[in-house]
Amino acid sequence: MAEKMKLSLNVNGQARTLDVWPMARLLDVIREDLHLTGTKEGCGEGECGACSVILDGKLVNSCLIPAVQAEGGELCTIEGVASEEQLHLVQESFLHCGGAQCGICTPGMVMAAVDLLHRCPQPDEAQIRDGLAGNLCRCTGYVKIVDSVADAAERALQVAKESRS
């Protein structure tokens, strides 16, 4: 048996230190050690995107990252997307446009959408479909998810306009 490591990272704005196996999957650290169960396991092989989180500003599959590589990192999970009371624009759009059905892909899908809009604030439909291509959804046929992201982008533009005027 190998030894556990002290893993220090920032999780949704809070500094955390944990004892973990260095080769434990970041996904398991998030779900079992941090008890943040909004991040889901759908396939365990980087295919479905249900475990998507943002690590050091980049969208990643947490099932493919060994804990050791999160050392010193800045991690944002679905629990860190909304503030206390206020949903993120993307979450609001998913609610209003019907982007969530069974909900199991939704946290990962929201993370991918947040990441996409960060990189590309006004995406066209092709860019949205590319940005979400790593997140499989079995319920929606993606139509309402694509609409949700487009809606969030549109509302972000409105918010920006209003704050300027």
Partner: peptide, 9 residues
């Protein structure tokens, strides 16, 4: 190759 999350790593 894969999709964005794979391409980032």
């Amino acid at each position: 190759t894969g999709a964005m999350a794979i391409q980032n790593r």
